[in-house]
């Protein structure tokens, strides 16, 4: 399964689960999902200046009965910390798909501090965390996260491992 295939499978799950809003900060690992959302007239795609905007975006959408999902890189999780209190205090359903950096063949040491603490930070903020290391389980895991969040009013994050995403090409 190549990158396009499993990301397309994840997008199909997002669509079939009734998600109508995709908030994101641009990210290479999420490029296919972002392009799918942008090309889809049934989806509101919202590009944000910082990941923390996504937490109240999703909360507001849910107040209006709309399901949403957030796409971000591990570095962006740190930007969300105080805003995640909104999810916890009000028990808003929330799903975040996180592309991991700083953990496998990382070229840029600046990615390591946040990448190495992403899962712990999310768990400290009361999010349930599922990690995907195998591309064949990506779509199923995202489906489970959406079901969990919207059936049980919890926050769920799916971490896509850097090893699965593949090495970033720094020099052509």
């Amino acid at each position: 399964m190549n990158v396009i295939d499993w990301q397309q499978a994840v997008y199909d799950v997002i669509k079939s689960s009734g998600i109508s809003l995709v908030g994101y900060v641009p990210d290479a690992g999420h490029a296919t999902l972002i392009n799918c959302a942008r090309d889809d007239k049934e989806i509101h795609d919202v590009v944000m200046t910082t990941e923390e905007e996504g937490i109240p975006l999703c909360a507001g959408a849910w107040l209006g009965g709309m399901r949403s999902i957030l796409l971000m890189q591990s570095s962006g999780v740190g930007n969300c910390v105080n805003m995640l209190s909104l999810q916890r205090t009000a028990r808003f359903p929330m799903v975040i798909i996180v592309t991991m950096r700083g953990e496998y063949a990382e070229f840029n040491p600046w990615q390591i501090p946040m990448g190495s603490t992403t899962q712990a930070v999310l768990e400290l903020c009361n999010f349930k965390v599922e990690r995907v290391d195998d591309e064949t389980s990506a779509a199923e895991t995202v489906q489970a996260a959406i079901d969990f969040a919207y059936n049980s009013n919890v926050g769920v994050a799916v971490l896509l491992s850097q090893k699965m995403l593949g090495r970033k090409k720094w020099v052509e």
Binding site: S20, L21, E52, E53, G54, C58, A59, G60, A61, L63
Partner: peptide, 12 residues
């Protein structure tokens, strides 16, 4: 977060 919360609601 107030403006973004209103924005999400406005989209919904």
């Amino acid at each position: 977060g107030a403006a973004m919360m209103g924005f999400g609601l406005a989209l919904a």
